[in-house]
Amino acid sequence: MQFKYDLEGGNFSRAGHASSEVKKILKQLNVDARIIKRIVVALYEGEVNVVAHAHKGVVMVDIDEKRIYIRIEDEGPGIPDINLAMQEGFSTASASVREMGFGAGMGLPNIKKNTDQLNIESEVGKGTVLEMTTMISS
């Protein structure tokens, strides 16, 4: 099963739309509630990262019996130092984004904690690709 959702940089009112849709789909598929919770946290953080930092992006979701694979691809500034970005508390978010309660440097750590497998590839000045895989049945 495949789904695709578009993300728009700066449009915070749409952030969470993909997560909300995926949550509904996983519920319908009777996936364990604890696993749904983890996936939703990771996907929401991924959406917010694109909205807060990039120009635009796309979320691609692929679900089979065993696992859910989510790929978030954006056109944006990229991440110069991924290890640094993974550190809790590190953030490059703007003041206005921080005022909304985002940009606390918890996004990528939250994503890592809540996915079974995370892969990040980024090119400065071009964009970032985030791939997250989580097992939905053993």
Binding site: A15, G16, S19, M106, N110
Partner: peptide, 30 residues
Amino acid sequence: LLSDVMGNANEGDVWITLQTHKNIMAVASL
């Protein structure tokens, strides 16, 4: 902090905050 709530709040919690924008509902619902 919305990421803090995303990462650490639990189902059935009452969330006390001073944030008033729409994203608090996205977080609350998720």
